[in-house]
Design a protein around this nucleic acid. Structure first.
Length: 480
DNA sequence: TATTGTTTTATGACC
DNA sequence: GGTCATCCAAACAATA
């Protein structure tokens, strides 16, 4: 499995090198931004981003003190700005010493062991409040709203949901991390508004929206991974354990109780997606390399299952709420598949259903009721699959050409089966109605200064929708 | 068949 | 308000 796409050690070094440059640049920029901010806070163009992550300027996990100089391009004999990777490759190749220094300069995210949250923390001030907050909400069980529960059940609220009354208030905007957000997630908990995001640098950012009303901004930045975060998974019944995966082949578990990012799994192959089965906190489901799919079992401390489900990378993994043996995958091989975990043939895995697109498929998510599937593809369609055996497929046109700088769009379901949310290139959120087979509404706001490309719907608060951008911003739309 | 090159595109920092 | 650097997508064309 995974040979051509497998990263050589050489490549890993190179990419990490690039990443570190990014980080350095980001750090420098933040620094100068702080001074600029106080000088011109009343810019013409309504600067709505009041809340933003802050980097601790003298963050030195263990080794780095004045190493900023050692990292500089000049001392490494590089041009101030490199125009292509070739030059960088050559330099790294020619000076193994430099490469070695670089590797050592950031031991935290590279160590193959547990990483204390203190070492991973990159913010100013203390993260004590965050840890306490996560622990307090995880001890107080969420009220279990039944979907059909009558009264103010989720279904009841959904039935009355007016798309026009969704609004974006300036206090619900923050820059949670630097750079491109790959993943955004609400803490699945009825009594909190906590955002978790992962970016391309390997940072994991938290935004405690409720506490951000006070003088604290409620934003906390960690750096547990050396490369892009490909997945975040949090189980409702275990909120203090947050799993993250990374393109560089690592899965870590942030345990708020132990204040540590434990290393759960590591591989030489990239991990492209991560998921967990509802009500099962013992197993992790993730994709590895080119088409590989693994189930990691905590009880035995290893992968209990390794299948080759696709021809190319698996971009998403999702489980059916009605029957958690039913799983959907989407892949860059141009297909989305529905599987029954109980009957997958190791040698020739056969899906229950295959949805064919003309280009790579970025996501495939089951609807809240479990009876529909929404797929998003680079072929400029959103697929809606319905029917008892998922027999009916409907393709709805939607421009999904995000280019290179914006994370690909992934259509997600709202709080019932009636709406699907997806970003558009005009800084809006398109709302598709599967019943009407078209986009019926678009959320727009002058406060949305960038394209929202990754989303999450709050599992308990109907109408609360988080959109994340490629500039590190998060917008939270709410009802009123 | 497998690898390599080219093109596309938005964002934030900085001037 | 304009310029500049970004740089683990993806599709396609061209080459080995």
């Amino acid at each position: 499995m995974a040979s051509s796409q497998k990263l050589t050690e050489y490549e890993r070094k190179r990419l990490e090198n690039i990443r570190r440059n990014d980080e350095m640049m980001a750090a420098l920029k933040i620094h100068s931004k702080a001074t600029e901010l106080s000088a011109s806070s009343s810019a013409k163009r309504q600067r709505v981003v009041t809340k933003s992550y802050k980097l601790s300027p003298e963050k030195k996990p263990r080794t780095q003190s004045p190493i900023v100089i050692r990292r500089s391009l000049r001392t490494r004999g590089m041009p101030p700005a490199y125009s292509d990777f070739k030059a960088l490759d050559d330099t790294v190749e020619a000076t193994p010493m430099a490469a070695k220094t670089l590797t050592q300069s950031n031991p935290s995210a590279r160590d193959l062991g547990p990483l204390s949250s203190r070492d991973a923390y990159r913010g100013t001030g203390s993260d004590k409040l965050l840890m306490e907050r996560i622990l307090s909400v995880s001890k107080k069980p969420s009220e279990d709203f039944g979907y059909e529960n009558g009264g103010d059940s989720i279904k009841g609220v959904c039935d009355r949901l007016e798309l026009g009354s969704l609004s974006l208030n300036p206090e619900n905007i923050a820059r949670v991390v630097p750079g491109k957000i790959m993943n955004v997630r609400f803490l699945p908990c009825s009594n909190s508004k906590m955002i978790v995001v992962g970016n391309k640098f390997g940072d994991v950012g938290f935004w405690d929206v409720d506490s951000s009303m006070d003088k604290e901004d409620g934003i906390y930045l960690y750096h547990p991974h050396p490369g892009p975060i490909s997945g975040i998974s949090i189980q409702q019944q275990c909120l203090s354990k947050i799993f993250t995966s990374c393109y560089f082949g690592f899965i870590r578990l942030m345990d708020a109780e132990k204040e540590v990012f434990d290393l759960v799994y590591s591989s030489n192959d990239p991990i492209y997606s991560l998921s967990q089965r509802p009500y099962d906190i013992k197993c992790l489901y993730f994709s590895e390399g080119r088409g590989g799919f693994n189930i990691w079992d905590e009880r035995v401390g290893k992968c209990s299952t390794q299948w080759n489900l696709h021809e190319d990378r698996i971009n998403s993994i999702d489980f059916n709420s009605e029957n958690s043996n039913i799983m959907a995958t989407s892949s860059s091989d141009g297909t989305a598949c529905i599987w029954d975990l109980r009957s997958v043939n190791v040698d020739q895995p056969k899906p229950l259903k295959e949805v064919r697109h003309n280009r790579a498929v970025q996501s495939a998510y089951f609807s809240p009721s479990g009876s529909s599937l929404a797929t998003t593809s680079m072929d400029d369609t959103v697929g809606i699959v319905t029917g008892v055996n998922f027999d009916n497929t409907l393709m709805i046109k939607h421009n999904n050409q995000t280019g290179r700088w914006i994370s690909s769009f992934r259509a997600i379901w709202g709080w019932d089966d009636s709406h699907v949310f997806i970003g558009n290139m005009k800084r809006g959120v398109d709302i598709i109605s599967p019943a009407q087979k078209r986009t019926i509404f678009t959320l727009e706001s002058p406060h949305m200064s960038a394209i929202p490309c990754r989303f999450d719907a709050h599992p308990y608060n109907v109408g609360m929708l988080a959109g994340a951008t490629s500039g590190g911003q998060v917008y939270i739309w709410t009802l009123g």
